[in-house]
Simulated scan of single mutants.
Amino acid sequence: MPAYDQTRARVEDYFDRTATKTWERLTSDAPVSRIRETVRAGRDRMRDLILSRLPDDLRGARILDAGCGPGVATIALAERGATVVAADISPQLIDIAQLRLPHDLQSQVTFHTGDMLDPKLGQFDAVIAMDSLIYYTASDIGAALAALEPRVSGPIVFTVAPRTPALMAMWYAGKAFPRSDRSPVMIPHAHPKLMSAAKSAGVRRMLRPVDRITSGFYISEAMELRP
C-alpha cells in the first residue's frame, strides 16, 4: 500500500521529531494548557469508550494495541488480564510505554516498534486502534481493516476523525500552515464512504459506528468491526 506507507512515514517522523515530549506530557498528570486539557479529557473518554467494547475479564485473550503511544491503554488491557502486543511506529513512544509499564504487568506485554499491520505479529482475539488511523484515507483504512480481519477472532475497535463542520474548519485551517511546520493532517470521514471503502477492500464484517467524543479541540468517533 504505497499511500499508506507514505503517510506512515510522515506520522513516524512527526512523532519522533516533534511530538514525543508533547504526548508524554499529555498522557501524564502533568499540567498542560487549557486547549490540551480538552484534548486530554477527550482522549480519556475515548479510551474508556473503546475499552468498554471489550470484556472486563480478558484473561486468556491476546490483544493488539495498535498505535499504543505511551501505553495508557496497554496498561489497562494488561490489568484486565490480557496478553498484549503493544505496537507503535515511534521508537521514542515505545520507550516511554516500556518505562511506564508496572513491573507486575511486564510479563503480559510485548512491545513492537514498527507497523501495527505486520503479519508477523500473529493472531489476536481483539484489536484496538485509538487515533492511529486518523491520518489515513478511506481506502487505506479499508485496506488496513482487510489486512487485520482474518487475523482477529473478535472485535476490531478503532477511531476516525468524523466529517463534522467543526472538524472540517480545523482541517482547512491546518492546511494553511507551511507543510514543514504542521503535524500530519487528520482526514475526516463520513460513514458511507468509509463503509464503502472497507467493503471494496474485501472486509466481510459490518463496519458500525459506536459513539462520538467531542471535547474542545478533540473530536473523534469510535467504529468497530464485530463478528
Rank of each mutant, 00 (worst) to 15 (best):
G202R: 07
P178S: 03
Y136L: 10
L93G: 05
D181W: 02
L101K: 08
G42S: 00
L99H: 14
A176C: 11
R36T: 00
L101R: 06
P119E: 01
V39N: 00
V160C: 11
L145Q: 02
A30W: 03
L49F: 01
T137H: 13
A78S: 11
P2Y: 09
Y172F: 09
T20R: 01
V109F: 04
D56R: 13
G81E: 12
V85D: 10
L49P: 02
K175D: 05
R205S: 04
D5H: 08
V203F: 07
R40M: 07
L167D: 01
G122N: 05
F177Q: 13
M195R: 14
D115C: 12
M168T: 12
A82T: 10
L93N: 01
V152F: 01
E79R: 15
E37M: 13
P184K: 00
M186K: 08
T20P: 02
E24T: 14
A166R: 06
H112F: 11
D211A: 07
S183N: 07
F15V: 08
A176E: 08
S90F: 11
M223Y: 13
K21Y: 01
P155Q: 05
P192R: 01
R43G: 13
E12M: 08
I134N: 05
A169I: 04
S153H: 03
G216L: 00
A78K: 02
M170Q: 08
A126M: 10
S28N: 03
A87C: 03
Y135K: 13
G71H: 04
A86N: 11
Y172W: 12
P188W: 01
G202Y: 07
R10T: 01
Y218C: 00
L64D: 09
R179I: 07
I89Q: 15
F158V: 10
P165N: 03
K21T: 15
P165F: 01
A126L: 09
C68F: 07
P2W: 06
S180G: 07
S132D: 15
S183L: 05
A201N: 05
S139F: 05
D5I: 09
A3T: 15
T18A: 15
I35S: 14
Q108K: 10
I50D: 00
A66G: 11
A41F: 07
F177Y: 09
A78E: 05
Q6M: 06
G67L: 08
D211R: 02
V127G: 06
A19Q: 13
V127K: 04
L133N: 04
R45C: 03
V11A: 11
S180F: 14
S139T: 11
P70T: 15
S139M: 08
V109S: 05
D56S: 12
D65Q: 06
A30Y: 05
L54V: 14
I35C: 04
D181C: 10
R100N: 13
L105S: 13
Q106F: 08
I35W: 09
Q108E: 14
Q6S: 15
R151N: 08
I128R: 06
P119H: 06
S153G: 05
Q123Y: 06
P119F: 06
A76P: 03
R47F: 04
E221M: 02
K175W: 13
S180I: 14
R80I: 10
V157H: 02
V203L: 12
D48K: 15
A78V: 13
D104S: 15
L54K: 09
I94R: 09
D118S: 14
I141D: 00
F111V: 10
P165R: 07
A198G: 08
P184S: 01
A176T: 12
L77H: 14
G60C: 09
